[in-house]
Write a protein that binds this DNA or RNA. Sequence first.
DNA 1: ACCTGAACACCGTTCAAGT
DNA 2: ACCTGAACACCGTTCAAGT
Lengths: 205, 205
Amino acid sequence: MARPHRAVLTAEIIADAALTLIDSGEPFGVNALARALGVKPPSLYNHVQGLEAIIELVRGRLADRYLVELPADAPWDVTVESTIRAERLMYTSHPHVVPLIATSTVTDQQAINAYDTTASALVDAGFPDSEVLVLVQLLDAFALGSGLDYAAPDAVWRPEGKTRNLGRLLELEPRGKVRSDQAFEIGLAMLLTALRARLEEHLRA
Amino acid sequence: MARPHRAVLTAEIIADAALTLIDSGEPFGVNALARALGVKPPSLYNHVQGLEAIIELVRGRLADRYLVELPADAPWDVTVESTIRAERLMYTSHPHVVPLIATSTVTDQQAINAYDTTASALVDAGFPDSEVLVLVQLLDAFALGSGLDYAAPDAVWRPEGKTRNLGRLLELEPRGKVRSDQAFEIGLAMLLTALRARLEEHLRA
DNA sequence: ACCTGAACACCGTTCAAGT
DNA sequence: ACCTGAACACCGTTCAAGT
């Protein structure tokens, strides 16, 4: 059998299977994905351009589900907070995706929309143009770093010798994902405070 | 010739060659590194445990050079600022290293020391134990994200459709590494402000 | 002690051949 | 139109053989 009467593959089917495989924690790649789909690796190239394109499809799939459209008339800090929380929920729900998308360029429309929404909220609030992308990037780095931390909460640092405080702090309760959650809340509160203070300065000047 | 009279390989030689190869931007791996060293891939395994160990050696090499010991009696915010600036200089000087070390566990002694120094500065300043690791992590994520941004400053987002503000902001001058530098300065100033404000709250309570 | 050759189980991608 | 087989140029790692 070379070609079934009804197509067994589409970009959507590939994206879904990719997300499932990534979430499983098993090694991810074109060959492994083809195996999971019961198909030979070259077949995928009839529907997607290659590994990077598949990863971008996965990003799009997640963005569609998690980065929903926000009300345009909400206060800027509500928009910012909602977006970061949605982004972090996306990452913590699919932690194995984080390392794959962390270093690639974002082209997916819904993901771009989410960043555009945050950028627009900051522009409308009164932040100067020259700062907005920086702030969007800072917030994104925080959400992403927080996602990486959630995926491997106690594995970021492994001191092998004596330390003044780091080793002791790593032993403190709570551990793991609970600590990662608390870390996220503290970091988010700090960033929002800093943003509000900075906006004050701009509006006063 | 199976074994030369004088060893051609040591862990240091491998680490240096690895850094040089990574910095060149060419594909990095055990095989490519062996080729660069004029040696067969299995030879490396007499000196290092594998690819991950080589990457950790590179981290150590950079930490030795950039994350120098700081005076223990400096004000906490000077320590924090110096460490972040040193870390960012390390990443911007070796941008291709960033994606390789971003997702791996830190075990190198000098790198651990740097984090321990920051943690201790925050503890001594009066931040509660429960927050210190979070803050160290937030600062680290910022430095790392800033390094990633410097490596590919205009490639983080590529909108293909229309956007309210994102596309316009991406076109603004300055571009590239200059913007990345400005972004770093703004982000750093914001984080230090937020840290000082948070410490105030803790000391007042 | 340490480098090599051979081997293993993988990768991502291209392309002509098949239906 | 779309799946396959064969092929290519790679990976990282193990291990017996060589000096």
